[in-house]
Amino acid sequence: MLHVLIAAATLVCAIQAVRAARLLVSALWLAGASALVALEMYLLGAPEIAVIELSVGAGLVTVLFVFAINLTGEENLDERRMIPRPLAWVLLFSAGALLLIFILPGINQPATGQVYGTFREIFWEDRQLDTLLQILMILAGVLGVLGLLSDQKTDLTPSQKEHRA
């Protein structure tokens, strides 16, 4: 019952995050969805992931969102869409059908795969290269934040930009 409630609340939060007209409201709904996903992960027996998701997904990303909205300002675009709405629905349903085709056959199969080891062994020993790449990604993220924070006074005129390029 609790799982059904969490699932319903998450989907409501997600729909509101997409529908909200103001970006700030959208970011807050996204944080709510993130917190509920973290709760669901905790209930599924993944407390480490839940903690990371809660602190990073609901905390850090929301703070950065508010910061970015502050820097860019609210902007109301008119209602024209990127693609027509019926086409979006068709693409959405075909994607959902594909997912179901792949997921459904495996859902009730008994667990047969061998267990590869504990979380620590898998993360630090089996997937060393991935861990290394994650560190590189974090560095890239730091550079991204530096770009976000880069000084405002480099407002060049187009001719200056051409000159500099």
Partner: peptide, 21 residues
Amino acid sequence: MVLGLIGIGIYALLTTRHLLK
């Protein structure tokens, strides 16, 4: 829940024009 989140995400990706959205 997974299908709902992925569906909402894909739909929003297809329709929105706002970079932050």
